[in-house]
C-alpha cells in the first residue's frame, strides 16, 4: 500500500523485521521450554520469507514471537526499527498484521464489515469508519482479490474466498509486515496457487511477508528467503536455491522432498 512505500522512502535502510540472538519457547513459573533458536534474521519491504519445518518444530511459536504475541526467551525482535518490547500493542498493530490458521467463526457479518474490523487500531473509540477508512477497506479488498465478495456474508464463503477476506482484513490494518500461519492449510490446489501468487504480488507492491507453510514446492517457487527449522531446533536462514543445493531440504525433509524441491526451483 502507498502508505508503506512512503515510509520506506523515508527510511530506506530500515528492515521491516529484524531479530538478534533469538530463542523462542515458553516460560511457566520455574520450567522453561526452549522450542527454537535462531541466528540474526532480516526482512526488507518487498521480500517474502517462508518458514519451513516439520510438524511441531516451532513454526507457530516463532511466528507468535515475531508478531509480539509472545515474549522471546532470549534475544530481540525489531519491528520497523524499534524493539518489540519498546512498542505498545497499538504501535505493533499498525506495523504488522497477522493471518492465523484457524478461521474464527464470526457468524453473520458481511465480508466488507469483517475487513472493516481490521481498521481497529486506526479508528476512534466508537470504531466508526471515516471516508478514509472506507477507502482503505475497498483498497484492501481489491488488493486481496476479494472485491467481488464484499457484500456477501462471510459464513457463506468457500475456504479460499474466506482466506482472501482474512488477508484483506489484515491489509486493512495498513501493516508493513504481514505474518501468516499456514494460510493454505484448508485450500484446494487451485486456491493454493492463487494464494501464493497473491502474497507474491503483495510483496512486489511493497509489503514484507512471512508465512509458515508445508507447501514446499509453492514456497520455494515464490519466496525470496527460506527460514528452515532443522532437526536440532535451530533456524537456518537461507535462500530457496541455497536451501536445495546446500542439502538443507534433504536433511530436514528427506531425499524425496529434496527431489521435488529441485524441480520447483525450475519454476522460478
Amino acid at each position: 500500500m502507498s502508505h508503506a512505500l512512503d515510509h520506506d522512502r523515508a527510511r530506506p535502510d530500515a528492515a521491516v523485521l529484524a531479530t538478534t540472538g533469538l530463542a523462542v519457547g515458553y516460560r511457566r513459573r520455574r520450567a522453561t521450554t526452549r522450542v527454537l533458536g535462531s541466528g540474526p534474521l532480516a526482512l526488507a519491504p518487498g521480500q517474502v520469507a517462508v518458514l519451513l519445518g516439520p510438524n511441531g518444530a516451532g513454526k507457530s511459536t516463532l511466528l507468535r514471537t515475531l508478531a509480539g504475541s509472545q515474549v522471546p526467551l532470549d534475544g530481540q525482535v525489531v519491528l520497523g526499527g524499534d524493539p518489540l518490547d519498546h512498542l505498545s500493542l497499538h504501535e505493533i498493530a499498525i506495523r504488522r498484521s497477522v493471518v492465523l490458521t484457524d478461521y474464527p467463526d464470526v457468524g453473520m457479518l458481511r465480508a466488507r464489515d469483517l475487513v472493516g474490523l481490521g481498521r481497529y487500531p486506526h479508528t476512534g473509540w466508537g470504531g466508526r469508519l471515516t471516508d478514509h477508512d472506507h477507502g482503505v477497506v475497498e483498497e484492501s479488498l481489491a488488493a486481496a482479490g476479494a472485491e467481488h465478495l464484499a457484500d456477501r456474508s462471510v459464513d457463506r464463503l468457500s475456504d479460499g474466498e474466506r482466506q482472501r477476506v482474512m488477508i484483506a482484513r489484515a491489509l486493512a490494518q495498513e501493516p508493513r509486515l504481514l505474518l501468516l500461519d499456514e494460510p493454505t492449510a484448508f485450500l484446494d490446489i487451485g486456491a493454493r496457487f492463487e494464494l501464493m501468487g497473491l502474497l507474491r504480488q503483495l510483496a512486489d507492491d511493497g509489503l514484507a511477508v512471512v508465512l509458515a507453510t508445508h507447501e514446499l514446492e509453492l514456497a520455494l517457487a515464490h519466496a525470496d528467503l527460506v527460514w528452515l527449522i532443522d532437526g536440532r531446533r535451530q533456524l537456518i536462514a537461507t535462500t530457496p536455491v541455497a536451501a536445495v543445493t546446500g542439502g538443507h531440504i534433504a536433511d530436514v525433509f528427506g531425499p524425496k522432498a529434496a527431489e521435488l524441491a529441485h524441480r520447483s526451483l525450475a519454476h522460478r
Binding site: L89, S97, V98, V106, L117, Y120
Partner: peptide
C-alpha cells in the same frame, strides 16, 4: 454501548483481537 468497538474485535476471537491492539 461505548465498548461496541472492542466487542466487534472480539468477534474474531481473542487471538485476532490482540493482534489488532485489544488489551
Amino acid at each position: 454501548a461505548l465498548s461496541a468497538k472492542v466487542l466487534n474485535a472480539l468477534l474474531l476471537g481473542e487471538r485476532y483481537a490482540e493482534t489488532m491492539g485489544v488489551r
